[in-house]
Each structure stands twice: as C-alpha cells, then as structure tokens.
Simulated scan of single mutants.
Amino acid sequence: MNLQEQIEKDFLSAYKAKEEVRVAVLRMLKTAIKNRQVELLRPLTDEEILEVIGRQVKQRLESIEQFRQGGRAAMAEREEAELAVLKAYMPTQLTPEETAAAVDAAIAETGASGPKEMGKVMQAVMARFKGRIDGKAVSEIVKARLSS
C-alpha cells in the first residue's frame, strides 16, 4: 500500500471514529496532495507525498512559534495536535548526533573548507537524508563547522 492509499484509509477510519483533529488534518493533507498532482499533471510518488507532508509540518512549526509569541496558547496547542498527526507519516528524524555526523561526513566528502562552500555541504546532506533531517539544524551545524 502506497502512502496516498494509507492516508485515504486513515482518513476514513478517523472520520468513522469522529476524530475531529485527525479528520481535519488528513482532509487538508489530501487537498494539498491533490493540488500538487494537478500542478504536475500526474500521480505523486511516495517521495513527493513526503515533500508535501514536510511542507505541512513546516507550516505547523511556524504557526506554533507565532502563536506562542502572540500569547495564543490554545491555538498553539491545536497546531501541535495537528503536527503530531502529520509527523506520523514522516520517516524517523535523525538525532542531533546523527545530524552532526552526517554534516562531518559531507564536509569531508565535498572537501569544503570555508563558509563560502556552505551550499555544497548543505546540498549533499539534504539530498542524502531527504525528509529525515531538519534543514535549520543542518545549517547551524554547517556554519559552526566551516567558520572554525
């Protein structure tokens, strides 16, 4: 069963169980996937669906941060509940230690020696661990490694 079929199946079971948040999140996710399919004029691969989910996760993270800054705890909690539903479909994320090791390996691989070559390292790490690694964390580690 591919990822899109799994999402559809989970949506139906959540709908029948009257799980409000899950139904809302999966409905939005299905719409985002459908919109992407219309853009590309073809069905999406599981990897492309993970990209769509990744964008949804990123939106939720940004919303949570903004709601917390604005003192809207209830809205932030709702976004966190939605985020938990979305993360269930994402591959397991690398730990901070694994992320640091991946950056070190990419630096050695690309031969990067200074901040000007940050893009090469970022590209290597992000391509290898697509969907499983936090770009912001990678960026911070790469900056620290290449500036010292």
Rank of each mutant, 00 (worst) to 15 (best):
R132D: 06
S63Y: 11
V103G: 03
A100H: 11
Q56H: 09
K116R: 15
R72H: 07
G114K: 10
G119H: 13
A124V: 13
A100P: 03
S63W: 10
T45D: 04
L61C: 01
V52E: 02
G131L: 05
R68T: 09
M122F: 13
Q93T: 12
E51S: 14
P96L: 08
I133R: 08
S63K: 05
P91S: 11
L50N: 08
A88D: 11
V85W: 01
A74I: 00
L86M: 07
S113N: 12
L44H: 07
E77F: 00
V121F: 04
G114I: 05
G54L: 09
R55P: 01
T95P: 12
R78G: 00
G131H: 11
R132F: 03
E82G: 08
I64F: 02
Q93S: 15
E97D: 15
T99M: 15
Q56T: 01
M90H: 04
R72Y: 04
E47H: 04
L83E: 06
P43R: 09
E65L: 10
E80M: 05
V121I: 07
R42T: 04
V57M: 08
G114C: 11
G70Q: 10
L44K: 03
I64M: 03
D134Q: 06
A101P: 03
L86P: 02
R128S: 10
P91H: 10
V138E: 06
E97H: 06
K58H: 14
E98T: 07
A127N: 13
K58A: 15
F129Q: 07
E62C: 00
E39Y: 06
A105K: 09
P43F: 09
I133Q: 09
P43G: 09
Q56S: 13
L26Q: 03
K136Q: 15
V138I: 09
A32Q: 11
G119W: 13
R55W: 12
T110I: 10
R128G: 05
G54P: 13
E117W: 13
E98H: 08
A101H: 04
G54F: 12
G70I: 00
A127E: 15
K130L: 07
R22C: 02
P96M: 09
T31A: 14
F129P: 03
A137H: 06
L50W: 03
R128A: 15
D46G: 06
Q59P: 02
L86S: 03
F129R: 05
F67A: 05
T95V: 11
A112W: 09
R55N: 15
V138K: 01
T110V: 10
L50S: 04
Q123W: 07
G111E: 11
A112L: 10
R22E: 14
G54N: 14
R60T: 00
R60V: 00
P96A: 08
F67W: 12
Q69I: 02
G131P: 07
M118F: 13
R27E: 13
P115R: 09
Y89F: 14
L94P: 04
R42F: 08
K30H: 12
P115V: 04
A102I: 03
E109T: 15
G114V: 06
K87Y: 02
Q66F: 07
E117I: 12
